[in-house]
Amino acid sequence: MSEMKDKLLEVNGLTMDFGGLRAVDTVSLNVCAGEIVALIGPNGAGKTTFFNCVTGIYKPTKGDVLVHPPEKKTQKINGFKSNRVTTIGMARTFQNIRLFQNMTVLENVMIGRHCRTTTSILGAVLRGSKTMRQERETVEKSYDLLEKVGLVKDADEFAKNLPYGAQRRLEIARAMATDPFLLLLDEPAAGMNPQETKDLDELIVRIRDMEKISILLIEHDMKLVMNISDRIYVMEYGKEIAQGAPMDIRNNPKVIEAYLGEESDA
């Protein structure tokens, strides 16, 4: 086992029921500081539902979601609204891109700064020095982030006009704008071609190394997952069926079966 690192996210026995359907069944998962952890599994395994429980979209039926923000008190965040979760320091992207289509690329990122700034309606009207300073900082930080994902030249473009791969990168930049210590990415490589995926690969590692942000990602692209993950959890039919280092997961018979069905050739 790897050395004792600080746990950032600790999920114990998470269960999510929708009426009679158990979408997530007693799943436990940790993410430690400086890690890239992947959550994989066939379609319908409950991965996005898991994400939604952790980020405040759903309230889990059972189980605990504990957050250990660096240098701060541990919190149990079951049922917290998603803006509160984000303010604590966990931000996410969405499986089906959810950008603010009729706002510019830069403005999309600037929204991420909302929870880290304080200007009120009155402040906005009066435009005192504090307000102007915050505005300037917001714009600067947003440009910085755009640079990091390579979208600076599109800053004034409407989000809806961006090509698909760029939209995904924009979502990441927007999530990063909230100053998270943990970033949750839901299928960031979906729909990308091999070159874009390779660039994404490098981007995610850079985020971990340079920005010191840990990552939990859902992904189907096995190459990406095997390349960059420190640890992998595998889900099937709502249950956790395996966890470990990429090498172990690759050779795990249960995982192979889940992906390829009963007869596992190749």
Partner: peptide, 19 residues
Amino acid sequence: RIGRAWMALREDEIACVAM
């Protein structure tokens, strides 16, 4: 800041709150 928040709320409430 508030104006942008309003617009984001209009565009996609779920994403806006998540941010």
